[in-house]
Write a protein that binds this DNA or RNA. Structure first.
Length: 845
RNA sequence: GCGGGCGUGAUGGAAUGGUAGACAUAUCAGACUUAAAAUCUGAAGGGGUUCGCCCCGUGUGGGUUCGAGUCCCACCGCCCGCACCA
C-alpha cells in the first residue's frame, strides 16, 4: 500500500456517498428525526477557515446522529441578498445577480471537497425568486394579521450605505456594516411588530435550556423589561393631561418638575405660538444628528410655562419642561423629575434652579440631598417622610410595589411593564433585496400586491453609476396598476432588510420546493432544528428575529404549534484566528504579510517580521489561510481534524502551520497502522489482546461522551491516546483489526474519507457512514484491579493496587498497612480514614 | 454605571469536589542514516535532595471540606454584552 494520499481517497469516497444518495433526507416513521443546521453563509465568493470549522462541527453531529440511528436532515443554502453585491457592482461593474450566482457556484465547488454530509437537493439561495416570492407571501399574511405596519418614524440613517438601519444594526452609534456615524432621519417605514411579543420572547428564554446562558442573557438584556407605572398628571390650565412613566413612584413626594420629549405632542402644540420653544425643539433635532453625539450631549431644557398638579399633593404644582434627554419612543415620552433621588434629574434641577425635595432619607441620616442624588438599592430600607401610602420599614422595592398598588386603587395610574425592545424597521433603500410587495395608489393608498402576482421580481436592467436605490430611478419598474382600483399606481421601491431572509430559511429547508412558504406536514415532521450552530455575533439580531418569525409564522398558519421556538439547541462556535506578520514601509506604516510568505519569523529576503498576537482572520491583516490550499496539500480530513483539535469548540482556535502538520501526521500514522495490520500474519498469536480491547472500549465510551457534549477537542485527545496504544500493541490480528476498525468508526464523523478507506481495507461491510456507532461494553470498562492513590492529610503519598470489588474495610486495612501510611503514623493511630471506592484513600493523621 | 464570563507549564488546552498539567505544539536527548529530512523511542511545572524521596505550585487573600483548579466571600487583572431606558 502506498503512503497516505488524501486527494485520491477523498474524491473516491465523496463519489461513493453521492452515488448511494446517502445524505438525501426523506420523512420516515421508523427512525427519530434529527435536524442539524449551521448558519448559512453569505456568498462572498470564497470559503474561509471559519466556514470550515462551522460546517465541520455540524457535520460531526450529523454523521454521529446518522450512525446512532437518526433520520438526519442537514441542508445548506445561501444568504444571498445584501450590500456587498451592490458594492461590487458599483466598484467593478457587472450585476449583483451575476456576481452573487457566480460566487455561489464558486463557493459550492469549494465546499464540496470538504465531504460534508449535506442534502444538496434542498439547496436554495434567498435571492432566488422562488424563495423571496414566498417571503413576499409571508409578508402579506403578516400584514393582514397586523404583524407589520407602516409609520413615520425617526430612523437610523447610514449616510455611507444610504439606507436605514434597525436599532440592532447600530453599534456604538455607527452602522454595523459601513462603520459610518449614524444619523437620525424621519421617514415612513415598514415595521414588524416585534415589541408586541417582547414579554413572550423574554419569558420563553427560560425554556431554552440548550442555548448558551450567555446568549439568553444577551437577549434578555436586549429586550430589557422594567416594571413601573404610568401616572396621570392634570394640567392646571385644564387642557388635558400628561402621562408619565416611572419605575420609581416611591419618590413621588420629591417630584419637582415634568420633562417631556421634544417630539412630544404637547411640545409640538406649543411650537406655533412660542418661537423660543420652536427654536429649542428645532435645535434638538438638528444638533443631535448622530447617536454618538446624543450620548455625550449636555442635558438641556426649556420651560414651557405650563404646569401640572401633583397627583397626590393638591397644593403642589410642577412646571413642565422640554428636555433634550427625554426619548419619545420609550415609555410615554414624558417623565417626572425627582432631583433628590435621580442624578440626572438633580443635575438638571441645579442647572435650572428647580426645587430639590427628599422623599426619604437613609435611616439615621436626615441629610438633604446636595450634589449627589440619594438612590437606594432595591433591597435597602429607607426612612420615608410622611409617605402618602403610609409605608414604614420596607425595602425600596416593597415601597415601589406598595406605591403602585396605592395609585392603582385610586385610579391615579396604571402599573405597567415597559420593554426596551423597539419594533423592527425592515425597509431598506437598496436594490439587492426582497421587494416589499405593496403598491402606492393615489386613490386607494397603500395596497398589498395580489398573491397571484407574486413574486414581485427585481428588474435586471438597473444602473449603479450613482449612489442610492436604483429601483427608485428605474424608468418603468415602479409603474403598475393598483391591485384594488386598477388605475396607475407606483410600486414600493424599498426592499426588505436581509435579516428577514434569514429569519425563516430554516423552515423553508423542510420543504424547499413547496408552492407555499412552508409545507405544514414537512415542517411538522422536521421542525424544530435540533441543533443549530453558528457564531456568537448573531446572538441578538438573527436569533431574536428568527424567534419572532417562528411565532409570527405560527400565528399566520405557516408553522405548526409545536414550532414556536425554532432552535431547540444552539451552539455558538469560536473563530479561527492566526498570528499577524507585519513589517514597516519607509514611512513607518505597517505592511502585512501572508503566512505563506513568512518562515522562521523572516521573509524570503531575510527581513524579520513583527509578530502580532492571533486575531480573527481578515484579508486586510493578511493573516488568512486559504482552506483550498490546505485541502490541496493535506486533504479535507486534515483540515477537519485540525479545526476540531486543541481548542474547545466554543472558543477561538488559532491556526498554526505546525498544528496542521501534526494533524496530517496523525492521519498518516493511522493509515500506516491500518496498512501494518492488513499485512499481519492472521494466525500468529499475539499478546495483550484484552488490554487493547479494554482500551478500545474505554475510548468508545470517552469519544461518545465527547461528541455528545461538544467536547470535540477532548474526544480527539482520546483518539490520539488510543492510536498510540494501538501503534504499540502486540495483540493478535483479530484484536488489532477490531481496534483499527473501531478507531476508524470513532474518527468517521471528523475524518470521514480516511475512515471509509480504512473500513474498506479491513473488509468492513458497506459504507462506514451507514455502519452503526460502536457501543462500549460496560464489562470491558471495569477492570479486575484498580490502583488507588493514598493521600495523607489530602496529599498524595503513595498508591495501592487492589481487586476492583474489594470491600471498603479491607481496602482501609491494606492502606493502613502500606508503607507511606506506616511511616506517617509512626506507631500512632489515624484520626480518620476516608475510602472512596474505586477512587482514592485519604488518611488523616 | 448595570449585567455576565474568564485567569492552570514556553504555547493551545485536560481534569463528575478525589493522583493537577491528559492530548497537541514548541524544546531537548536517543535510535535509524555517510548526513539531513521523514519515522520511531524517551525526557520535561518550579526548587531541593543523602537519589529513598521532600517542599512549593491552577491570578491574590481568606473560608467550607478528610480532600478545592473546581464550592463560598473579598480583592486584582483581562474579555464580552447593555447603557440619557425615566
Amino acid at each position: 500500500m502506498p503512503t497516505y494520499s488524501p486527494s485520491d481517497i477523498e474524491a473516491r469516497w465523496q463519489a461513493a456517498w453521492d452515488e448511494a444518495g446517502l445524505f438525501r433526507a426523506t420523512r420516515t416513521a421508523d427512525k427519530p428525526k434529527y435536524y442539524v443546521l449551521e448558519m448559512f453563509p453569505y456568498p462572498s465568493g470564497r470559503i474561509h477557515m471559519g466556514h470550515v470549522r462551522n460546517y465541520t462541527m455540524g457535520d460531526v453531529i450529523a454523521r454521529y446522529k446518522m450512525a446512532t440511528g437518526h433520520n438526519v436532515l442537514h441542508p445548506m443554502g445561501w444568504d444571498a441578498f445584501g450590500m456587498p453585491a451592490e458594492n461590487a457592482a458599483m466598484a467593478i461593474g457587472g450585476h449583483p445577480k451575476t456576481w452573487t450566482y457566480d460566487n455561489i457556484a464558486d463557493m459550492r465547488a469549494q465546499m464540496k471537497p470538504l465531504g460534508l454530509s449535506i442534502d444538496w437537493s434542498r439547496e436554495f439561495a434567498t435571492c432566488d425568486p422562488e424563495y423571496y416570492g414566498q417571503q413576499q407571501s409571508l409578508f402579506l399574511d403578516f400584514l393582514e394579521a397586523g404583524l407589520v405596519y407602516r409609520k413615520n418614524a425617526q430612523v437610523n440613517w447610514d449616510p455611507v450605505d444610504m439606507t436605514v438601519l434597525a436599532n440592532e444594526q447600530v453599534i456604538d452609534g455607527k452602522g454595523w456594516r459601513s462603520g459610518a456615524e449614524v444619523e437620525r432621519r424621519e421617514l415612513t417605514q415598514w415595521f414588524f411588530k416585534i415589541s408586541d411579543m417582547a414579554g413572550e420572547l423574554k419569558s420563553a428564554l427560560d425554556g431554552l435550556e440548550n442555548w448558551p446562558a450567555k446568549v439568553r442573557l444577551m437577549q434578555d438584556n436586549w429586550i430589557g423589561e422594567s416594571r413601573g407605572i404610568e401616572i396621570t398628571f392634570h394640567r392646571t390650565d385644564g387642557n388635558g393631561t400628561i402621562q408619565c412613566y416611572s419605575t420609581r413612584p416611591d419618590t413621588m413626594r420629591g417630584a419637582s418638575f415634568i420633562a417631556i420629549a421634544p417630539d412630544h405632542p404637547v411640545a409640538k402644540a406649543l411650537e406655533a405660538d412660542r418661537p423660543e420653544v420652536a427654536a429649542f425643539v428645532d435645535a434638538c433635532r438638528r444638533m443631535d444628528t448622530t447617536e454618538a453625539a446624543m450620548e455625550k450631549a449636555e442635558k438641556k431644557g426649556i420651560d414651557t410655562g405650563l404646569t401640572v398638579k401633583h397627583p397626590v399633593y393638591d397644593d403642589i404644582e410642577l412646571p413642565v419642561w422640554i428636555g433634550n434627554f427625554v426619548l419619545m419612543d420609550y415609555g410615554t415620552g414624558a417623565v417626572f423629575g425627582c432631583p433628590a433621588h435621580d442624578q440626572r434629574d438633580l443635575d438638571f434641577a441645579r442647572k435650572y434652579d428647580l426645587p430639590v425635595r427628599n422623599a426619604f432619607y437613609m435611616p439615621g441620616d436626615m441629610t438633604d440631598v446636595a450634589t449627589e442624588a440619594l438612590v437606594p438599592a432595591k433591597t435597602e430600607t429607607v426612612s420615608f417622610i410622611d409617605h402618602f401610602a403610609d409605608i414604614t420599614d420596607v425595602t425600596s422595592q416593597e415601597a415601589i410595589d406598595a406605591t403602585i398598588d396605592w395609585f392603582e386603587a385610586r385610579g391615579l395610574g396604571v402599573g405597567q411593564k415597559q420593554y426596551r425592545l423597539r419594533d423592527w424597521g425592515l425597509s431598506r433603500q437598496r436594490y439587492w433585496g426582497c421587494p416589499i410587495p405593496v403598491v402606492h395608489c393615489d386613490t386607494c393608498g397603500v395596497v398589498p400586491e395580489k398573491k397571484e402576482n407574486l413574486p414581485v421580481v427585481l428588474p435586471d436592467d438597473v444602473d449603479f453609476s450613482t449612489p442610492g436605490n436604483p429601483l427608485d430611478r428605474h424608468p418603468s419598474w415602479r409603474q403598475v396598476p393598483c391591485p384594488k382600483c386598477g388605475n396607475g399606481a407606483r410600486r414600493e421601491t424599498d426592499t426588505m432588510d436581509t435579516f428577514v431572509d434569514s429569519s425563516w430559511y430554516y423552515a423553508r429547508f423542510t420543504a424547499p420546493r413547496a408552492e407555499t412558504p412552508t409545507d405544514l406536514e414537512e415542517a411538522g415532521y422536521w421542525m424544530n432544528v435540533d441543533q443549530y450552530i453558528g457564531g456568537i455575533e448573531h446572538a441578538i439580531l438573527h436569533l431574536l428575529y428568527s424567534r419572532f418569525f417562528a411565532r409570527a409564522m405560527q400565528i399566520t398558519g405557516h408553522l405548526p404549534e409545536t414550532a414556536i421556538e425554532p432552535f431547540d439547541a444552539l451552539f455558538t462556535q469560536g473563530m479561527v484566528t492566526h498570528e499577524i506578520y507585519q513589517t514597516r514601509d519607509a514611512k513607518g506604516r505597517p505592511v502585512y504579510h501572508l503566512p505563506e510568505e513568512v518562515s522562521d519569523g523572516k521573509l524570503a529576503d531575510g527581513t524579520e517580521v513583527e509578530i502580532i498576537p492571533s486575531a480573527k482572520m481578515s484579508k486586510s491583516k493578511k493573516n488568512v489561510v486559504d482552506p483550498l490550499g490546505i485541502i490541496a496539500n493535506y486533504g479535507a480530513d486534515t483540515a477537519r481534524w485540525f479545526v476540531l483539535s486543541d481548542s474547545p469548540p466554543e472558543r477561538d482556535v488559532e491556526w498554526t502551520a505546525s498544528g496542521a502538520e501534526a494533524a496530517y501526521k496523525h492521519l498518516s500514522r493511522v493509515w500506516t497502522i491500518c496498512d501494518r495490520i492488513g499485512a499481519m500474519d492472521k494466525d500468529a498469536p499475539g499478546s495483550g489482546d484484552e488490554d487493547l480491547l479494554r482500551a478500545m472500549h474505554k475510548t468508545i465510551h470517552d469519544v461518545t461522551m465527547g461528541v455528545e457534549s461538544f467536547g470535540f477537542n477532548a474526544a480527539i485527545a482520546k483518539l490520539y491516546g488510543f492510536t498510540a496504544t494501538l501503534q504499540k500493541s502486540r495483540a493478535g490480528y483479530g484484536a488489532q483489526r477490531e481496534a483499527v476498525m473501531t478507531l476508524a468508526q470513532l474518527m468517521a464523523p471528523m475524518t470521514p474519507h480516511l475512515s471509509e478507506d480504512i473500513w474498506a481495507h479491513q473488509g468492513g461491510k458497506g459504507l462506514i457512514a451507514t455502519a452503526p456507532w460502536p457501543v462500549a461494553d460496560d464489562a470491558m470498562l471495569i477492570s479486575d484491579t484498580v490502583t488507588l492513590p493514598i493521600q495523607i492529610n489530602g496529599k498524595r503519598r503513595g498508591e495501592i493496587t487492589v481487586p476492583a470489588d474489594m470491600d471498603k474495610t479491607e481496602v482501609e486495612a491494606l492502606s493502613l498497612a502500606s508503607e507511606p501510611v506506616q511511616k506517617a503514623l509512626a506507631g500512632g493511630v489515624p484520626k480518620k480514614v476516608i475510602v472512596v471506592p474505586g477512587r482514592i484513600v485519604n488518611v488523616v493523621v
